[in-house]
Design a protein around this nucleic acid. Sequence first.
DNA 1: GGGGGAGCCCCCTTCAATGATACCATTGA
Length: 575
Amino acid sequence: MVRPNEEVEALLQEYADLIAITGGDAFKARAYEKAARAIGGYPADVSHLDVAGLREIPGVGRSIAEKVVEYFRTGRVTVVEETRARIPAGVRQLIAIPTLGPRKAMTVYEDLHISSVGELADAIRAEKLRDLKGFGEKTEANILHGIALMQQAGGRIPLSTAMESAEEIVAELSRIAGCEHCAYAGSLRRMRETVGDIDILVAADRSAPFMDALTELPSTAEVIAHGEKKTSIRTVKGVQVDLRVVRPDSWGAGMQYFTGSKAHNIRTRTIAVRLGLKLSEYGLFETEGGERVASRSEDEVYSRLGLPWIPPTLREDRGEIEAGLRGELPEVVTESDIRGDLHTHTDLTDGLAPLEEMVAAAAERGYAYYAVTDHAPNLYMQRMTDEKILAQREQVRSLDGRHHRMRLLHGTELNIDADGAVDWPDDFLQGFDICVASVHSHFNVGRRAMTRRIVRACENPHINVIGHPTTRLIGKRPGVDADLDEVFAACARTGTALEINAQPDRLDLGDEDILRARSHGAKFAVSTDAHSLLHLAYLRYGIGMAQRGWLTPEDVINTWPLARLRRFLRKDRAD
DNA sequence: GGGGGAGCCCCCTTCAATGATACCATTGA
């Protein structure tokens, strides 16, 4: 991720929100939103571009280009500052609440002077909102539910946000003289879908230079604690980072201890006790006499406990200790096992980059194959037509094998309607190499109907992958209500793969569901659902989920050679 | 505000669900 681009994206998005809240021209707000997205997904650093260079980016014209230049020259944009001065920051936070949009946010601000989520919740409890024009009891209940959903995340941050911050900090600290090792640990290393705080570990003889460096990073906003053993800071994005420096000979024990999980560590320490040993962040010691028996590497620590090294993504006390003791730990799938992405978009629908650029970027990643799966017509806002998708197919065929001999699959992402039917009839679907099918609408049809429609999609002989199967958005929308066991069984029975969608706000399926689906014998596709060049790299987060679900390459269809994949994609059709 | 075809103007993502309201505004995919 290019940091300056991210900053501009956030700034333009904020301005778009402010325009919407103040009731400004809706097209203007949309123009800023579009430009924000385009710059966020632009692969080159925009801070080096002049007005002419910026205007090369689709959706960026003279006015926005000049604002971007102003931002990099002065650190601020005058009109944005002026608008900010009129609307308290808390009002903008209100529109993050599901079911509360810009219009209603402005109403509660103007009529009740509410400018924070807390004040809003209080006003609802005092039944004050229901008297406002356009509000009622239902609206109150929905907003309260939305607030609860938001707070369920409990201040946890998305895996990808934590990862980007952590990798920057690790890179900075690694440059300091005397650094023998530096890495992130904790739930981030275990690749949990959200992360509470970032734990960073350094192995060095002297701790002070690292502790000082952390407090002085440009991204550090606040120092929470600053000591010899531990320093905690909060970044400008509000993420807490804990740094610990251990002696080099304690590196392995430190990483083992600070990676967790807590449940996993209770198990490892219990094993140690049974062996007459004591395990701490400093090492594995004899209980009697206190002699150190292992600490330098994680491998050494696990080995002394009679265990193989356990991948961090498995360390949740979900059977990995028992499997390790039996020598039956799975060889979990890794990023390098993946031979191709099976769910991606282009600017033919809502992607940012043209087909050629997406294909070239995929080839750069060393893929053997790559599927292009733009949206189908029933997602009306994307304006897909038969003609457009067929023209794209021609283009895909002409690019096939041209980049490092990477093979291209032409596909689509279909919409599963309320009855389980999809956008195109069988004879048209037959022309695709791969069909992903997803639920994009009618989320509240009830458990029976939801289960039935997804199962019916599985039974469609042309549908190969169920896209983002639960359709959850982390912190925003719970997964759909369906009998997932029935869905997973249908996938296994019909030869339909379940997607592990690697978009950081989806991570769908999640680890628990993957474990259940695997027990039904279902197969999986780890895909990025990329809407820009940069999204192709999200694969690592999907792999994290797959590992947490104990998947091996055998379980994941896009680790397979193309010939085997093609056989799978034919399902049991005779054509 | 951006973009395209003209020289300043016009168009720009559609549709369903929901809830408040009495026929419509808001939200989200």
